[in-house]
């Protein structure tokens, strides 16, 4: 399957959540507290895209659809896109760029500390998502850096957990999904090590990195 034609529709679809909230603000369909609805909604979608991005590799392995990996960078960047929007709504609509209050908030409120940490960890990943950065860093170092997405996803779920007042059902669902996505990776590690120990290990490291660059 050629992913070239898949990219535009996925790109458009990824913008739909944003469109939904923009339309909602216009049409007044977001309830009594639209600012909160937008802030939380964008945060939820940032988390959704993080998890979707983390689903690509397992899905590719189990389905054999190698082309899926071609969508991964775009989906990861959409996670970053929604994180930036989510952060902007906080800085603007919640704090009105009162930097003193924001600094105090980051230091004092664990859920904001955690959210901010996740943002600053995600920033280098977004900045090194282009082919030039990948080439410059080299596949191995690039991959090492981008493994921090696992930590970022955990921080994001924790950020959600610490934010809710009493009903932790939804963050719990995210935690379970993330646990599965990370668990399957740990499982692969274990299997790989066993194979290594059994002596039947055939190295194939380039496969994981090369498909990320766009072939022209």
């Amino acid at each position: 399957m050629n992913p070239a034609w898949l990219k535009p529709p996925v790109f458009i679809a990824s913008l739909l959540p944003l469109a939904w909230y923009l339309w909602g603000v216009q049409a007044d369909t977001l309830g009594a507290n639209p600012i909160e609805a937008v802030t939380r909604g964008l945060g939820t979608w940032a988390l959704n895209f993080l998890l979707i991005t983390l689903t690509i590799t397992p899905l590719r392995k189990y389905s054999g659809w190698a082309w899926l990996v071609r969508l991964r960078r775009m989906l990861g960047l959409f996670a970053f896109f929604y994180v930036v929007l989510h952060l902007t709504t906080y800085l603007w609509l919640d704090q009105f760029f009162d930097w003193m209050a924001i600094a105090k908030d980051i230091l004092k409120r664990p859920f904001i500390t955690v959210g901010m940490t996740a943002f600053f960890l995600l920033l280098p990943l977004a900045l090194t998502s282009n082919n030039a950065a990948l080439r410059k860093l080299g596949g191995r170092r690039w991959q090492k850096l981008h493994r921090s997405v696992y930590v970022i996803a955990m921080l994001a779920v924790l950020h959600y957990f610490w934010m809710v007042k009493a009903d932790a059902t939804k963050p719990l669902i995210y935690a379970v999904l993330l646990f599965m996505l990370l668990g399957v990776r740990i499982l692969w590690r274990i299997q790989e090590r066993r194979r290594q120990q059994a002596g039947s290990y055939s190295p194939k490291p380039p496969q994981r990195v090369i498909p990320l660059t766009v072939k022209r």
């Binding site: 009594a32 507290n33 909160e36 209050a101 908030d105 409120r109 610490w162």
Partner: peptide, 12 residues
């Protein structure tokens, strides 16, 4: 403990 009570958003 988890958020400020210094300000509020009046609905609307």
């Amino acid at each position: 403990p988890r958020w400020s009570q210094g300000s509020e958003r009046r609905i609307g």
